[in-house]
Structure formats: C-alpha cells, structure tokens
Design a protein around this nucleic acid. Structure first.
Lengths: 357, 357
DNA sequence: TATGCGGATCGAATCGTTTCGATCCGAGCC
DNA sequence: GGCTCGGATCGAAACGATTCGATCCGCATA
C-alpha cells in the first residue's frame, strides 16, 4: 500500500532481468545495446509506469542541470509590461528551448531596496549551469559577485564589460545619434529629450548635469550619450517609468511650457507613443507643431494612422544571440561578444519645423 | 593547475578537521552543532572559496528541486503582451519566490501545431516539484498526461476539473453576465460581442452556433455563457488575437455594418480598448452612439479621458492563490480549489442608447 | 581445437549531499 | 568514584542515475 514511491531505474532493471547499467543504456540513445534488451527494458518500464530517468540523479552525475537562470532584475510586472523586454526574452527562451535548456526566472533584487547588497536567494541556491543578466550589470553588482562565487558562468546582455563573460549589446548610441541627426537635418534645433529612467528610483522631472552623471543603466547612458553626440537638448526629462503613461505625463509638461520645443526625441517607442497622445490631447498637430521620434521599432498598430519615426533594433535576435552565447559557453568555447546593428525608420511623426516651412 | 573543480563539502570538512556530516550541519541552520565547530567550518569554507552546498547533491538527497514548472502554453511573446497574463504571473512568481521556490518557464506546445500530441520536452525531463497549468487544461490535454506519468502534482489555473488537482478560478461567467445586465438595464438590446479567441487557430470573423461549440478554452467559454445568461447578442465576432489591434479590427467591421448595434461587450479590456479606438476612427461618440464595455479591470491610462466600463478581476491575487496552492501541495496538504470574486466597475464608456434618450 | 576479436553486458565507483543511528565525552548527581 | 544523561560528533547508508573498465560470449579464423 505504501507503493506511492516512484519506480527507479534499479527496479526496472530488475524486472527486465538486466543490470542497472544496461537499463540506463536503453534510455540514453547512444550506448551499445542490443535491440532485444532495449525492448525488454522499455517494456518493463511501461509495466512499472516508469517515466524515464529521474532528472535529479542524472543531473548530479553529469554535473549539469540544463537550467539557465535569467535575472530580469525587477518586478516581473514592470519588466514584462515593456514589450522590449518581452521580445528579447522570447528570442532567448526559444533559442535555449531548442537547445534543450530551461529558463529559470529570477526576479533579481527582491523588494524595493535595490541599493542593498541583498541578492535573490535563487541565485545562491538554485541549480543552474549559466546565469544571464539580461539588462546589464551595474558597477559592483552583487548579483554578478554571487554568480562568480558559485562558479556559475555568466552572459551579459547590454552592459559594461565583465571579464570572461560574453556581452550581447546593441548599437544604441549610434542609433540614437542617427535619429537625432535626422531631426537636425530637418531643421530642428530646439529638441527636447524624454529619457529612459536613469535608475531604479521612480524619480521624475527635468534632469541636470549632476543627475545625468548618476545614471547607472547602460542603455540609458548610451542613449543619453547618443543624443549629445549630435546636439545639446533644450531639456531632458526623466519619467517615472518606461511606459506610455509616463511618456505622456512628461510630454504634457514639456509641451505646455512657454518655449515649446519643435521636436521631442524619446529613448523608447512607448515613451514616444505617450508623447504622441499628449500632443493630441493638447491639440497639437504632429509633425506640423511638433515632431516626435522614438527608439525600438515596436509594432504599435493602435497609433494608426500615425507611424512613429524610430530606430529599429533586432530585439528577438538579441535574445537569440544571448541564447547562442549561453550554448557556446556550455560547449566550453571561449566567450564571444556581439554588437547588433540598428536601423533608422522614418515614419509620419517627424517633419520640418513650422518656422522652416 | 587543474584546480578548476569547485570545492566540495568533503574538502571543507577535511580542512576544518571535522566529519562531513558535521560540516553539513554548519550550513543547515537547524542541526545540533557547537558554535566552535560551525565557525571552524565556515572559516574553512571561506578559505577554500566554497559557496555553500551544491544544490544538485542536496536536491538528489532530499528529492526536492525547489522548482515549479509553469506552463504558459504559448509563445512567450504572445502570452506576455497580454497584461492579464503578466499580472497573474507576477503574483505567482512573488508568492513562490517568498516560499523559496523558483519558476521554470515552460512555453508549452512547441511550434505551431498545437493539435499534435507533442509536449514541451522540458515537461518530460526537467526537474520540478510541481507543475502549474496557468491557462487551464483542454480536454485530453497531453501536457497534463505527461505530468501525471512523471508523478508531478499539478495546479490548474482557470479550467475544468482535474482529479486530485486544485483549481484557482475566477467568477468570470457571473461577471460577464453582470456587465451585460448593466447594458440591458441601460436600455440596450442590440448588443454585439467581441469574444476572446475560441482556440489556437488565428481565425477571425463572425461566429455561428457550430463554431461556438468548438471553443475549448475555459475563460472564453465561460464568458460566452455569461453573455447568454442575459441576452442573445446580435452578433458574436471572433478576433484573430487578444490584443488591442484585434479588437479594433473587429469593431471596425461591426460598427460599419448597416444595423449598427448600440453596444459592444468585449471579453477583455484590450479588445474593448481596440473597439474604442475603432469608434473614434469612425467618428462615433462613446457612449452616445455606442456603448463599450470590457472585462479585466486593467489600468489603461492612455485611454484617458475615457474610463472603460469593465469587470475587475483580482489578477495578481489569482497568481498568489495559485502560488499558495502549490506551497500547500508541497506541504502534503489536500488540494483545495478556490474561486475568486469579480466586481463590475462602471466607467464613462457606457450609457443609455440614443433612441432611449 | 585453440586463438583472437568485437560487441553486449555487467559491477563498481562516483557525483555531493543529507540523515539516521551509534559513539563519545564532559558535566551533574548520588 | 561510578553512573546517568544529553548534546556534539562521527560513519555509513542512502538518494538515482551515468560511466568506465572488465568480463563474457559467440563467431570467424588459423
């Protein structure tokens, strides 16, 4: 009656009348085993309702768990409301899945106090073969240190150099410069900037030089730099978050002021979409009264008939490249970093400023 | 030079001059061990750069992996663009994280052929203590069968009964009836319905009785039934997907026809938001020309100044309840199903039909 | 008939822990 | 001083598989 325990390979072997090692061969396709014994083993397995080797035993022996820990570095809710994150993750999960690897979701910094040295306990105690820091590492990142201590190799998406770890990044500085150059070449000089959040504090408002220097997120810093490669924005606004509503809020303030800029460049499409809604609400024509450009190249059909001018980045491909880097690392190859290219896509939301007409 | 192998507990014990079992006690807080030996062990660990017991060994011994497999049943990209899914997942991940459990993401049906009996290989071979089928089970679900074969207990979100598995569901049939009743009590009788997708085929168009019977997704079926508890819709439209653009597409057709309905009830807020955009594009006033209601209770600030009439369901709480059910199951308690309540929230998008004014 | 060969099978070691029962030791008590 | 008691420590046995070297068997060859 206490037969609730799952059958083991030993039981199957006994029933089939072979040694455990032979039974093992029947399940791992590659060993030398006769058709006859394989069938006997499989039959015995069926009779005992044995569903294949227990992963835990296999993992201990082989030293591999087949699991990749992915640190998304924030509350799920916040990360996944951002389509950029979702697309990258999608590419990553597909690639890893195809390689037989599973994704363990690691929220990252637990709770609000992202300053503390606390690390998600999963990083310290869950079994994994590789860790992925999708959104880059911060200086002196405790997460990175924890992985290192455990001897878990790491792949970094989008970030500063980490010795021994491959980085998959995107040419976002150049892309940002491209879109700003597009604006200046149309004749704009009073360009406002809506930045991505500079850090985890949900602060919002205009950004001064001191605050600018505090940015510890790589994509944000790169895009700030990209803008400044071409022009000094008349104002840089830091929104409370990365979503549409935050962009709208920022743009309302920017566009309501006395010296209305002739163009807004946002660090992301979601923020730009918010700016578009703001302009609409304020009765401003786009692009006649104000040009608006974004970054990401998302598909935002609900903006129709407007088509956002933006910079398309290969998001799913980025995820896929990270996945490849993981597989590569597990195969024992040397880490290899990649930078993916971006492309300016001109839509209907940018045009020459009114004065220039 | 070949010292690349990670140190083991045995090494630490040797260095500390204690038995392996004693060293083990130093890491698991609860055993009887003197302060002195614990310190000696921890010191030795530090010297050897030992980062704590290897999870694989621990897992094999205890028979627990601390991992919960969550089947999201679709491409990540599609699931996670839906804020409903994201909020539930967020609640789930938080609850499980607090219990020290990790979430293994299982896409579910690989590739497009969702009809086949194929199952995500992770379900067959990854280590996990419990499986979660977030979006319910279909009749004769191969995924469910695979879990059963492996002896992995299962928790089901939103679905039909599964013997021995707790179900966490939401009173969506009653909620849908409530919102439709709200419309009829305003005087509407010509009500159109935009349904959630009936199955995985990305079919779209008007739905007849035969097609209606084919719906194999529980939330969809429940909401279809909820509408019919109150009124027979003048038309039911099946969109190609669950997102804003799909709702817009559907509504454009519905509202362009000759017998324009006076109200549209959508199975979700995203679809309803699409309908709102459609009405706007067609120059129709909401709610004067057409009332629009949704379901979910999402926060959609970019619809402002409109506030959608909808039915609020406790999404994060649903995820949390699923998490609790998992923890409960692991504690050896009997499975316990829950049905969560919903609440009608009247916004500015519904009002009496023009004729009735 | 003896020898050699190659493929199938087997036994035993191993992966790194936890846990359980046994041992050991010092303190307290009579 | 002998005895008991209890807490700290230890050894060994799992946990469930893979893998490697050794054995075994049958067949072909000399």
């Amino acid at each position: 009656m206490s037969a609730s325990a799952r059958p083991t390979l030993a039981l199957v072997a006994e029933r089939a009348g072979v040694a455990i090692s032979t039974a093992s061969l029947a399940f791992t396709a590659n060993g030398p085993i006769s058709e006859a014994s394989r069938n006997r083993v499989l039959a015995a397995a069926r009779e005992l309702d044995y569903a294949g080797p227990n992963p835990l035993g296999r993992q201990l022996r082989s030293g591999r768990s087949g699991i990749v820990g992915v640190v998304i570095g924030d509350q799920l809710k916040r990360s996944f409301r951002d389509p950029v994150a979702v697309q990258v993750l999608d590419g990553l999960v597909s690639t890893l899945g195809a390689a037989g690897l599973g994704v363990l979701l690691i929220p990252g910094i637990p709770g609000v106090d992202a300053d503390s040295r606390a690390v998600d306990p999963l990083i310290e105690s869950a079994a994994m073969d590789v860790g992925v820091l999708v959104w880059g590492v911060r200086t002196d990142d405790p997460t990175l240190a924890a992985f290192e201590r455990r001897g878990v190799p790491v792949v970094v998406g989008e970030g500063r150099e980490v010795p021994g770890a491959p980085i998959v990044s995107i040419a976002d500085r150049r892309g940002t410069a491209d879109v700003v150059r597009h604006l200046t070449s149309l004749g704009h000089s009073a360009i406002a900037e809506i930045a991505l959040p500079l850090d985890h504090t949900r602060r919002s408002g205009p950004v001064d030089a001191a605050r600018l220097a505090q940015s510890d997120r790589t994509p944000t810093s790169n895009r700030l730099a990209g803008v400044r490669d071409v022009v000094e924005p008349v104002i840089t606004w830091e929104p409370a978050g990365p979503l549409v509503e935050h962009g709208k809020e920022a743009a309302i303030t920017i566009l309501s002021g006395d010296d209305r800029p002739t163009a807004i460049v946002a660090h992301s499409d979601l923020l730009a979409a918010g700016a578009l809604l703001a302009a609409q609400e304020l009765g401003l024509k786009v692009p006649e009264d104000v040009s608006i450009a974004g970054f990401d190249g998302l598909d935002l059909p609900w903006l129709a008939p407007a088509v956002l001018t933006t910079v398309r980045q290969p998001l799913a491909e980025k995820g896929a490249k990270i996945g490849e880097a993981v597989v590569n690392l597990l195969a024992g190859n040397a880490p290899e970093s990649v930078e993916l290219d971006v492309e300016l896509v001109v839509g209907t939301t940018t045009g020459p400023p009114r004065e220039a007409v």
